[in-house]
Amino acid sequence: MSFEVLQGKLRTRILELHHMANSGHIGCSLSCIDIMISILCAKNEGDTFILSKGHAATALYTILSELGEIPMEVMDTFYKNATTLPAHPAPLKYKAIPFATGSLGHGLPLATGIAKANKLKKNNHTSFVLMSDGETNEGTTWEAAHFAVANKLDNLLIVVDKNGLQGFGNTLEVLGDTAAAAVWTAIGFDVETCDGHHLKSLMETKAELLSRKNGKPKLIIANTIKGKGVDFMEGRLEWHYLPMGENLYQKAVEAVRSAYSIDSN
């Protein structure tokens, strides 16, 4: 399966889950699914991945089911009573989800701790964490960032899903650009910026950063579009929250099929 087809296929699955559940957080998952593909489909044994923006759980669930980490039949239980797949990831349910998240600002300290442990154990594992740009408002971001620099954690790779929208406004208007490359570079991070929906670019940027054993923790600022792949959702704050009715679901699926050249099967 080509990456383009996978990008489309996982998007239609995300839409399907949200349609089944009549739930929101659609735009957030469509914003970061490509980043997850770039990390999880090329992860080495021993590497860890933490989804810090836990509200993009459907993106995580769909790719983990694609990779065989979550049984397909369990996916049908999403958002229902007695599920192991609530709207934000649950603790201690799946090996590939090492930590439950949902409250923002937790993933980076966790991933930083894992990176520090890997250094103490002198192994070559990489600790990946995916954050939202709004999430970089959280104070723990800066506590962990300074620790990572001071401890030379070049085995830590943060990807910021920079779609420019947060819970109740544009990131620039809320607290300013707390995910600005200049800020992170000044702290001491090794920073690269790329198109967060272009898989080749994401993977090359990741490989380039990890090849630099320079003692600097790594950051990819992935420029993204909230709701990417569904034209009427793209760049719109309301698709952080809204569920889809039947008509909009059909339109959304058509939009994805058209954008990613996949057939209706």
């Binding site: 930590f99 300290p109 701790g113 723990t140 506590e143 620790f147």
Partner: peptide, 26 residues
């Protein structure tokens, strides 16, 4: 030695990191 870490004046990060380290068997 290196298993003693001064995490700075950053208690939230310290506890989050500790959970991350503990998840690797520490």
């Amino acid at each position: 030695g290196d298993r003693f870490i001064n995490g700075g004046v950053a208690e939230q990060n310290i506890v989050g990191m500790a959970a991350g380290m503990a998840s690797t068997g520490m």
